[in-house]
Design a protein around this nucleic acid. Structure first.
Length: 829
RNA sequence: GCGGGCGUGGCGAAAUUCGGUAUACGCGGCAGACUUAGGAUCUGUUGGUGGCGACACUGUGGGGGUUCGAGUCCCCCCGCCCGCACCA
C-alpha cells in the first residue's frame, strides 16, 4: 500500500483518482447514451435547445473551447436534470482557409487535415464530458451538408436576394481572396491581419440591406448582451434624413446628396465629392484636371491608418465647377476630398461648416465661407473653430426661419418634395454581404455561365455541385483566381438550359454562409430531401441559449439572423430570430495577456487535464468568476478544485445508510442546510451565477463533513440526503466525480438524469434570524429573534440592549425605524 | 470623438433585482494537529489602524447629494476595458 495522501482518512479504495474515473465513465456513457434528444412528437416534456457555437477544426481543443463548452454544458445538464427533452448537438464548421493552407504545405487534400482534426476534437469533447447528442454530428464540408448551402443560395437567387455585381471590393493580398465588409477590421483582414487592398471585381452578394430595418427592430425581443446589440445597431448604422438634389453647372443630371440635417440646407456654402468616386472624375473642369489627378494619386497611396486618423488635417482640391443650392439658387464651389466616402450615401455631400465639425475644418483650411443658420446661443464657429451641431432656431433660412430643428426638418423636406428636389429617406452603413471567395475549400457557387443563356442556376436535381477531388497540394496555391478554375474537367459543362458549352462559377462561398443555418440542420441532420425537416425545426427552434465567443458579435450572428428572416419569408420556419438568449463567455488568458506563442504563455488544455483531471479543470473555469468575465489562468487554482472534488468524493464513500432511506427521519439541522442550498443553488443556476452556486455546494460539503465527523454521524439519513443532493448539483460541472459519487452511494447511473432536487418549503423556514440593531446607522448589537416577531416587541428588545444604551450615551431617542425582523435603526436626538 | 461596460481585501470574487450585518466561497498568508518528513490531509485564523483585552475608529476609485440608513440611487470628476471611428 502506498503512502499516497489520498488514501489517508478513508477506507482502502477511497482515493480520488480522476483519470480512472474518467476512463470508467466515458465507456459507460457511450453505452448509456444518456443525452440523445427525443424526437417522438408524443413526448410532451418541455423542450429545450442548448446550442454552442460549433468549432473550427484547427488542431485540438484549447482552453477557450473548454470554457465555452463547460458553460454551455451547465445549461444543458441543468435542463436534463429538470427532466426536459433537451437538444444539445455538436458539429464542425469545417470549410475554410487553414485547411487549404495546410494542404498546400503538406501536399495533400484539405479534407485530410480537416477530418483528422475533427476526429481529434471529437475525442477531446468526449473526454471533456460534454453532454452532446452525438447522433446529430454534422460537418459543413460534407457534400450532404453543403448541397443545402447551394440550395439556399438558389432560393435567394430566385428571390433576387443573391445577385452579381461589379464594383470595388476588399481584397486580402495574403489570403488572395475578396472579403466581406464585416471581415475587414480597421483596414486589415480579420483572419490574417494583412492590410486590405481595393480591387474592382464582379462578385456575388446577398442582399442583407433589404433586411436592415427588420434586423434592427427585432433586436428588441432578444435576451442578448447589450454590447452585442449595440455593435449590431452601430454596424447597421441606420440614419434618417433626406436626399437633396443639387444641379451641377455643365451637367445635365442633378447630383443627389444625403443629409441628416436638411434643416441646415441654407447653410451649405460648398459641396464635396469623394475624391475616389467616379463623379469627381466626371465633373472635374479641364483646367483643374492635373491638380485633381495628383490629389487622387496621393489619396490612393495613403495607408488606411493615415486615412482613418481623425486628427489629420483635411485635404482636397477645387474641381473648378459649381453646384446650385436647390432652395436659394446659390452657386457653391464643388471640391473633391477624401473625407467624403465614396461608399456611403451618394459619395457626395453638401457642406454646412457652421454646424458640422468636419465641414468646418475643411472650410477653415481652404478659406471657404461659414454661415450660421441655426441660432444655438453658442459662439460663432468661424471664430472659435468649433461647429455648433446642436438644437436651436433657424435663421438666414427663408421659409423655415424661426422654426426649431425638428419642425424645420419636416418643413424643408416638404418643400423639397413638393418641388421634386428631394425627399425624406433613410441611409444605412450596412452593405450587402459579399459571399464570393477565390478559394478552393468551400461550397461551390451553383451557377453556370453560358455564352447563349448567360447566368444559369444549377437545377436542384443536380445538387450538390461537388468539389473536384483531383486538386491537391500546389494545385491549391493562391493565384488570385479560384484554384477551381484550373480543374478544366470540372469547370467545363453543358448549359442546363440550352445544352451548349458553358462554364461553372469557380468561386466558393464565404464559410459564414455555412454557419448561418447549421443550427437548423441539427434538428434533422440526416434529412435528404431538404435542408431540414420543417416540423422538427418548428419543435426545437429558436435555440433557448446560444453560447460562444463575442468575436462573432457582428459577422456570424448578423448573417444567421438574416438567413433566418429569409427562410421565414419563404415560409420555411415560423420564427424570425434564431437565438433567444446569447451568452458570450470571457477569454481564458494567462498572466494578464491573451495566450500567444510569441509571449510563450500558452496553457495546454490536454496537459491541464492530465495534471488535474477534467472535472477540476471544468470546475476551476466555472468557479473563477461570472461566465462573461475573462479568466486569468494564473489566478486560478485547479489543485484547489481537485481538493474540493476529493472531499465530495470521500463523503460519498462515508455514507452508511441505505439508498432509499426516509430523509424525513434525518437530522433536522443538516436537512435545513441541504434544502436551503437547493433553494439558493437553483436560483443561482437559473440566473447564470454558477460561480456562486459552486460556493453554496462547497458550503454544503463542509456541513456534511461536520455532520459525519462530529454530528449525527455517517448513518444519519440527512447525511445521505445532503451527499446525494451534492452529487446531483455537482453533475453540472464535474460529471465524472458526480457519477462516481452516485455509484458509491449505491445508486444507478446516470446521475445526469437523477432529477434536480426540490426544496421542501417547511425546511426553509428559519426558527430565528439575526436582527441588526443600529444606532445612527452604525451596527451596535445583533439579536436572535423569531422571524415573525412583531414590530413593538422588536423595538422594545432593541432599546433594552446594553450595547445600544451604551452607544446612546444618555441621548434621547428621536426616532426608531423597525424593519422586522432584520433591522432596527435608532436615531438619537 | 461617439457608444457599451466596469472600478469592492495581497489575488479571483460575493452582496447590486427591491437601499438594510460589506468582503460569502476559494486562492494566497499565518498558526496549530497528524507526521521521519510535508509542496499531502485536517483544524483555526486572516480588510486597515489602535488596544493585553472587551472593544473603538476606519474602510467598496475621488468629491458632493437624497435617506433613519448608500458598495447599491442621483450629480460631477478620475481611471480602466471593449466596440466603432471623417458614415454627412
Amino acid at each position: 500500500m502506498s503512502t499516497d495522501a489520498h488514501t489517508r482518512g478513508g477506507a482502502p479504495g477511497d482515493s480520488y483518482d480522476p483519470r480512472a474515473i474518467q476512463d470508467k465513465w466515458q465507456a459507460r456513457w457511450a453505452e448509456l447514451n444518456p443525452f440523445a434528444a427525443v424526437e417522438d412528437p408524443a413526448d410532451e416534456r418541455p423542450r429545450r435547445y442548448a446550442l454552442d457555437m460549433f468549432p473550427y477544426p484547427s488542431g485540438d481543443l484549447h482552453m477557450g473551447h473548454a470554457e465555452a463548452f463547460a458553460i454551455g454544458d451547465i445549461v444543458a445538464r441543468y435542463w436534463f436534470q429538470k427532466g426536459y427533452n433537451v437538444l444539445h448537438p455538436i458539429g464542425w464548421d469545417s470549410f475554410g482557409l487553414p485547411a487549404e493552407n495546410a494542404a498546400i504545405k503538406r501536399n495533400s487534400h484539405p479534407a485530410e487535415w480537416t477530418y483528422d482534426n475533427i476526429e481529434t476534437q471529437a475525442a477531446s469533447f468526449r473526454r471533456f464530458g460534454i453532454s452532446f447528442d452525438w447522433s446529430r454530428r454534422l460537418h459543413t464540408s460534407d457534400p450532404e451538408y453543403y448541397r443545402w448551402n447551394q440550395w439556399i443560395f438558389l432560393r435567394l437567387y430566385e428571390r433576387g436576394l443573391a445577385y452579381r455585381k461589379g464594383g470595388r471590393v476588399n481584397w486580402c493580398p495574403v489570403d488572395q481572396t475578396v472579403l466581406a465588409n464585416e471581415q475587414v477590421v480597421a483596414g486589415h483582414c480579420e483572419r490574417c491581419g494583412a492590410q486590405v487592398e481595393r480591387r474592382v471585381l464582379t462578385q456575388w452578394y446577398f442582399k442583407i440591406t433589404d433586411y436592415a430595418d427588420r434586423l434592427l427592430d427585432d433586436m428588441a425581443a432578444l435576451d442578448w448582451p447589450e454590447r452585442v446589440l449595440t455593435m449590431q445597431r452601430n454596424w447597421i448604422g441606420r440614419s434618417e434624413g433626406a436626399d437633396v438634389q443639387f444641379a451641377i453647372e455643365g451637367r445635365d443630371e442633378p447630383v443627389t446628396v444625403f443629409t441628416t440635417r436638411p434643416d441646415t440646407l441654407y447653410g451649405a456654402t460648398f459641396f464635396v465629392v469623394a475624391a475616389d468616386a467616379p463623379l469627381a472624375d466626371e465633373i472635374c473642369a479641364d483646367d483643374r484636371r492635373a491638380e485633381f489627378e495628383a490629389y487622387k494619386e496621393q489619396v490612393a497611396h495613403e495607408s488606411e491608418i493615415e486615412r482613418l486618423s481623425t486628427e489629420r488635417e483635411k485635404t482636397g482640391v477645387f474641381l473648378g465647377v459649381h453646384a446650385v443650392n436647390p432652395v436659394n439658387g446659390e452657386r457653391i464651389p464643388v471640391w473633391a476630398s477624401d473625407y467624403v466616402l465614396a461608399e456611403y450615401g451618394h459619395g457626395a455631400i453638401m457642406a454646412v461648416p457652421a454646424h458640422d465639425q468636419r465641414d468646418l475644418d475643411f472650410a477653415l483650411k481652404f478659406g471657404l465661407p461659414v454661415r450660421v443658420v441655426v441660432e444655438t446661443g453658442e459662439a460663432d464657429p468661424a471664430e472659435t473653430g468649433v461647429a455648433t451641431p446642436g438644437e436651436g432656431s433657424l435663421i438666414n433660412s427663408g421659409p423655415i426661419d424661426g422654426l426649431a430643428k425638428d419642425a424645420a426638418i419636416q418643413r424643408i423636406t416638404e418643400i423639397l418634395e413638393n418641388r421634386g428636389l428631394g425627399k425624406a429617406t433613410v441611409n444605412y452603413r450596412l452593405r450587402d454581404w459579399l459571399i464570393s471567395r477565390q478559394r478552393f475549400w468551400g461550397t461551390p457557387i451553383p451557377i453556370i455561365y453560358c455564352d447563349a443563356c448567360g447566368e444559369v442556376p444549377v437545377p436542384d436535381t443536380e445538387l450538390p455541385v461537388r468539389l473536384p477531388d483531383n486538386l491537391r497540394g500546389a494545385d491549391l496555391a493562391p493565384k488570385g483566381i479560384s484554384p477551381l478554375a484550373a480543374a478544366a474537367d470540372w469547370v467545363n459543362v453543358t448549359c442546363p438550359s440550352c445544352g451548349g458549352p458553358a462554364r461553372r462559377d469557380t468561386d466558393t462561398m464565404d464559410t459564414f454562409v455555412d454557419s448561418s443555418w447549421y443550427f437548423m440542420r441539427y434538428c434533422s441532420p440526416h434529412q435528404e430531401d431538404g435542408p431540414f425537416d420543417a416540423d422538427k425545426v418548428r419543435r426545437w427552434m429558436p435555440a433557448d441559449q446560444y453560447t460562444g465567443g463575442v468575436e462573432h458579435a457582428i459577422l456570424h450572428l448578423l448573417y444567421s439572423r438574416f438567413i433566418t428572416k429569409v427562410l421565414y419569408d419563404m415560409g420555411m420556419v415560423d420564427f424570425t430570430e434564431p437565438f433567444r438568449r446569447l451568452v458570450n463567455q470571457g477569454q481564458v488568458i494567462n498572466q494578464g495577456a491573451a495566450m500567444s506563442k510569441s509571449l510563450g504563455n500558452g496553457v495546454d488544455l490536454g496537459e491541464q487535464i492530465d495534471q488535474y483531471g477534467v472535472d477540476a479543470v471544468r470546475l476551476s473555469m466555472i468557479f473563477a468568476g461570472p461566465p462573461e468575465d475573462d479568466i486569468d489562468w494564473a489566478d486560478v487554482s485547479p489543485s484547489g478544485s481537485v481538493k474540493f472534488l476529493a472531499r465530495a468524493h470521500r463523503l460519498a464513500g462515508d455514507v452508511t445508510s441505505a439508498p432509499g432511506v426516509d430523509f424525513a427521519a434525518g437530522d433536522e439541522a443538516l436537512r435545513k442546510i441541504t434544502h436551503r442550498t437547493i433553494d439558493e443553488a437553483t436560483q443561482l443556476v437559473e440566473s447564470h451565477r454558477y460561480n456562486v452556486a459552486i460556493a453554496r455546494m462547497m458550503e454544503l460539503t463542509s456541513a456534511a463533513r461536520k455532520a459525519v465527523d462530529t454530528g449525527p454521524g455517517p448513518g444519519d439519513p440527512a447525511v445521505r440526503e445532503a451527499v446525494e443532493t451534492l452529487a446531483i448539483m455537482l453533475s453540472l460541472v464535474a460529471p465524472y466525480t458526480a457519477e462516481e459519487m452516485w455509484e458509491r452511494l449505491g445508486r444507478t447511473a446516470s446521475v445526469a438524469k437523477a432529477g434536480w432536487p426540490v426544496a421542501e418549503p417547511a425546511l426553509l423556514v428559519r426558527e430565528s434570524v439575526t436582527c441588526v440593531v443600529q444606532v445612527a446607522g452604525k451596527v451596535r448589537d445583533r439579536l436572535d429573534v423569531a422571524p415573525d416577531i412583531d414590530e413593538g416587541e422588536l423595538e422594545r428588545l432593541a432599546l433594552a440592549s446594553g450595547k445600544v444604551q451604551a452607544a446612546l450615551e444618555g441621548r434621547a431617542v428621536r426616532k426608531v425605524i423597525v424593519r422586522v425582523p432584520k433591522i432596527v435603526n435608532i436615531v438619537p436626538a
